[in-house]
Amino acid sequence: MTAALDEPRATARRAPLTRLLRSELRMVLRRPRTLIGLALLALVPVVAGIGIAIATGSSSGESVGDGLASLVEGNGLLLPIFGLTMSMTMLLPLTGAMLAADALAGEAANGTLRGLLVAPVGRARLLAVKAFGVAAVSLFAVLLMAATGIVAGLLLLGGDGMLTSSGTTLPFGAGLGRVLLTVVLVTVQVWALAAVALAVSAWTEHPLIVVVVSLGVVIVSGVLSVIPALDWLTPALITTSWEAIPEVVKDPLPTATLLTGVLRAGCYILIGYSIALSRMLTRDG
């Protein structure tokens, strides 16, 4: 009755949405594998920062690596961006796939999905709650990585602004803005893969299959994108936008490229959730 007082009358008959979302979040965050995964992800930028700090300390004047890595030295604000783009190749997609696998297929494997399907919650609503859980926790993981990256970068590597790959130096505030932009871009891409994984998750009862199929999608996309004869296919591949994320350190910002990446991810999100929805509606519990 207390919950009903907080909600408008129209929705009072069903379980209030905020409570469902909160309980879903609590459940996802209470799983030990989620916590261990988050902790490991948070460590990625720290480990990368320590590695770069040691490498620059021992060999003076030598470039630490290629691409972004060569710019991170003495350029702490770039460390979260470096960590995020590095994790985008495998760790973050894996996290998204794991969360999506647990959301539906995991429940089905435990036998708890049946209970949820017969509960007085609409199936579309159930899917929305599950999708919210996946999206919120992946956003949290990316934010966590950015936070540990900023702290580790400023402590280990220093720097009071951000040196872009175009050779300009952004003030601290603008640099922080670029980190936040990276967080948004990376999160949207993780959501795209998680949406595809959720669609698979709705079709199977084995969480492992979801993870395997999602990684298969990533690897096959990567292979297809390097075959010259299939160049026409590249703009439609899910991994194409992932490769463009490091462009956030260019100055001026290549807005068009980044926007195309977000649109592409949006298409995958739409397809993934639509397929998941149609399966949830026709599923026999």
Partner: peptide, 19 residues
């Protein structure tokens, strides 16, 4: 269900347009 079908179609059309 028809909303879901329309969503899938829109997503696919979007990808085709991008490509």
């Amino acid at each position: 269900l028809s909303v879901a079908a329309a969503g899938t179609a829109t997503g696919v059309v979007g990808l085709v347009l991008l490509a």
